[in-house]
Amino acid sequence: MSTLTGATESAGEAVPLADDVLQPRPRRRRAGGEGAAGRRFMVGGLLLLVCWAMLSPVLWTAMVVTKPTSIAFINPPQFTYHPSLDAFVNLWQTTDFYSYLSNTVVVAVVSTLFALLLGVPAAYALSRFPSWISVVLLVAALVFRALPRFAVVLPMYDISRSLGIYDTKIAVVAALVAINQPFSIWLLRNFFAEIPQQLDEAAMLDGCSRVQVLWRVMVPLMGPGILTAGIFMFLFAFQEYLTALILTDVHSPTVPVFIATQLGQTLPLLQQAGAASMLLTLPVIAFAFIAQRYLVAGLSAGSVKG
């Protein structure tokens, strides 16, 4: 049941399936009184500090973009100022930010759906078909996850031009599906491995075909796994810069591409790029808060345990 190193002397008890994991475990309070309280205080303080450090680039950017333009980047930096939202207003009025954002979301959602649509059955097949071909596929999926973008995307640039789909969302989606799909197989395979084969056999005795077993029996059981893989696929696609940079010109740039092309600008455009970063960041922060519990649950239930 281990994924990688073949470590076998693992956790002792079988790892519970997702439904159990989502339940808060009853925790025993360790004895210790005063000392424990002090330690908890220290741990809390330390974590607060870490959180602050991890968020500081975002917080500083939030300050930069709400400053008046003339002091946005002065040195030494100014810490007090009258906040204004002008950079956001200008961004919205003078650029097509709305369409960049919708391009980004559409590309991310569609490519995630396709990656899962391809990845789920493939992962299921891999988990039930012990043969050399499964080994080859899995190793290939691993290597494909690690390919340098240029090796794939520059030829895609050429190919998409000759197919006439260059500079469309279709080209970006196709590229992202190709790039992300191998990893979804990789994440999902272990969830399937967790589900006992007897279940398949029982369902097939009832007259289900393999495809029916997958959709009627496996997928409902795989909720947390598919959700986990989906969240990762979405994040990868949402963040992708090089692929969208190389495969788009005027019709479907994504927000990361837009922001990157604004980095070589002067004020006030540079401040607008900062505003764009914040507008892009806020929804994904909400996403992070919601996603974290599913990720922990999903990941511990299947994909990567030792």
Partner: peptide
């Protein structure tokens, strides 16, 4: 007429 923002290097 379509124009997208871009910097000089771009």
């Amino acid at each position: 007429v379509n124009h997208q923002p871009i910097d000089f290097a771009g």
